Structure formats: C-alpha cells, structure tokens
Simulated assay, not measured.
Amino acid sequence: MDFTSLAQVRTRIDELDNQLVALIAERGKCVKAAAAFKTDDAEVRAPDRVQQVVALARRRASEHGLPEEIIESVYRAMIGAFIDYELRQHQQLTQQKSRTDAPA
C-alpha cells in the first residue's frame, strides 16, 4: 500500500485496529465457551496449548515478514489476558453448577 501522508497511515491503522478488536472479541467468545468444557484451573491454563499457539503464531508471523518476537509478545499478552478471563468464567460456571447440584 502506498501512503502519501501520515494521516493516511493512521487512518489505515485505525481501520486495522477495528478489525483486530472485532476478531479478538470473537476469540473471547470462543474462550468463554471453552471454559464450559474444562474441569479445573490446570486445564484452563494449559501450558502445552499455549506453547502450541505461540509456536504457530511465530511461524505465521515469519511467513508474513513480521519479526517472530513481536507476534510472540503480542500473543503471550493476549493469551495471558484470556487465561485470566477464562479462569473467571470457569469459576462462575463451577459456582453455578454447585448451586444447581446442591440439595434443596
């Protein structure tokens, strides 16, 4: 893409950021859904899965000419935030289930 001004660059960044936020929100819905399938905090944290996702992101970054360190940093921050979110979701689901299962 050829830019002729900083304003054009910033406009394009804003457009991309809008798309990224929409995609991250969609990812968040998947994370929330995943919480229902997990039985404990260890399954939520899933360090092996984290490594798998980061490794795949690094390969994809390389294919697109982006330094792998940048995407790893972004992904680790995003995954960390989503793990915290999923832990809260999992805790809420566990509490709801225990209230539902409790004798009346």
Rank of each mutant, 00 (worst) to 15 (best):
Q89E: 12
E26C: 04
A77E: 02
G80N: 07
L87C: 08
V50W: 08
E63T: 08
I13C: 04
S98P: 00
R58C: 14
T100V: 01
A102L: 05
A22Y: 04
P67I: 05
D40K: 02
L6N: 07
C30W: 08
T100W: 04
R49K: 13
M1H: 04
A77H: 12
D84K: 15
L87M: 13
L66S: 11
E68I: 01
A36H: 10
E86A: 13
A104Q: 03
G65P: 03
M1I: 02
A25I: 12
T39H: 07
A7D: 01
D14M: 06
K32Q: 01
Q8T: 01
A22V: 12
A104G: 09
L93I: 02
S62E: 00
T39A: 13
E69D: 02
I71Q: 14
V9A: 10
D14G: 02
D101C: 01
A55G: 05
V50Y: 00
P103F: 08
V44R: 04
L93W: 01
V31S: 13
R12I: 06
S98I: 03
A61H: 11
A102N: 12
R49M: 13
L93V: 04
A36L: 12
E69M: 05
F37T: 08
A33E: 14
D40C: 11
S73A: 14
N18Y: 05
R60V: 15
Q91D: 03
N18C: 05
P103E: 11
I13V: 11
S5W: 01
D48N: 10
L23K: 14
I83L: 11
V50N: 07
F82S: 12
K32S: 14
V44P: 05
Q91K: 14
F37K: 13
I83A: 08
L23M: 15
Q51G: 00
K29V: 10
D40G: 05
S98N: 04
R60I: 12
L23A: 15
A22H: 09
N18M: 06
R12T: 13
V53K: 01
A102Y: 07
V44K: 08
E72R: 11
A34P: 00
Q51L: 10
R45S: 07
G80W: 03
F37A: 09
R60S: 10
E63K: 09
R76A: 05
V54P: 12
A7K: 09
P47D: 06
R60H: 02
D40R: 00
D48L: 13
Y75T: 13
D101W: 04
V31T: 10
P47K: 09
A34C: 05
A25Y: 04
F82L: 11
